[in-house]
Amino acid sequence: MPRITPLSGNRAGLLGRLMNAAARWREGRDFTPLQIVAHSPPMLLPYVQMSAFSQGRTLLSPQVRALAMHLAAHLNGCAWCMDYGEHLGTRAGVPAQKLSNVHAYAADPAFSPADRAALAFAEEMTMVGGRVTDETFAELRRHFSEREVVELTLAVAAENFFNRMNAALGVEEQGFCALPGSRAPAGAADGA
């Protein structure tokens, strides 16, 4: 149960109702995080615009972006983001097994060298302080252009924003996706 009451109907205000109508049209249901942000109407539009970092058109592969964001959600222990991230990842064509094993990317042969570089970057970026080593960055640059690195950085930063907000406010998963073994490994929330 969220720590803040989700607002719906007239209580959500006009912009909140419009944004959740768009969510229902796109995904078949209201988004609990949007219903919570509706408590602060001036923040609704900037909040939704943050999703452009995670779902907008980019030169960066949507599969790589989805994997990196999903790893951040795992590391931060955000149930809502893991749930919705699995949904978006499968929609982007990421195999369910890769989504389920994203936390083991370094040892899993299903992940390409480019996947591993992006995921190592996302992992370091997600840790407290967000410091990325020169070695990790150099490996990332072997696989991605400057534009792709910027797009990956924005996507992971946005994911961390959503993760931290949802976890702090107790936003739970909404059942967008039900992949086996997709929940955060024990202690994952302690890493961020």
Rank of each mutant, 00 (worst) to 15 (best):
G9M: 05
R11C: 09
A12G: 00
A12R: 06
A12T: 01
G13C: 04
L14H: 13
L18W: 04
A23K: 06
W25D: 02
R26H: 15
R26P: 00
E27V: 15
F31K: 03
F31D: 03
Q35Y: 01
Q35N: 08
H39I: 13
P41G: 06
P42D: 04
P42C: 05
P42I: 10
M43V: 13
M43Q: 14
P46K: 10
Y47L: 09
M50L: 14
M50W: 06
S54T: 15
Q55E: 13
Q55D: 09
G56E: 11
R57N: 14
T58S: 15
L59D: 15
L60Y: 08
S61I: 13
S61K: 01
S61V: 00
S61C: 14
R65K: 11
A66V: 11
A66M: 07
L67V: 00
A68D: 11
A68Y: 11
L71F: 09
A73I: 08
A73K: 03
A73M: 10
H74T: 03
C78P: 02
W80A: 10
C81H: 03
C81L: 08
D83V: 03
G85V: 02
L88T: 07
G89I: 01
G89M: 04
G93K: 08
G93F: 05
V94Y: 10
P95K: 09
Q97V: 15
K98M: 14
K98P: 05
N101M: 12
H103R: 11
A104H: 04
A106V: 12
D108T: 09
P109S: 07
F111Q: 02
F111T: 08
F111K: 00
S112A: 12
A114I: 07
A117P: 05
L119H: 06
L119Y: 00
F121E: 09
A122Q: 01
E123C: 02
E123G: 06
E124T: 06
T126M: 07
G130D: 05
G130V: 04
R131C: 11
R131I: 06
V132C: 05
T133K: 07
T133C: 03
D134E: 15
F137M: 05
F137V: 03
F137Y: 10
E139R: 14
E139H: 12
L140I: 08
L140P: 00
R142L: 01
R142N: 08
F144H: 09
S145G: 10
E146H: 13
E148F: 09
V149R: 11
V149A: 00
V149G: 08
V150R: 02
T153K: 01
L154D: 11
V156T: 08
A157W: 05
A157F: 05
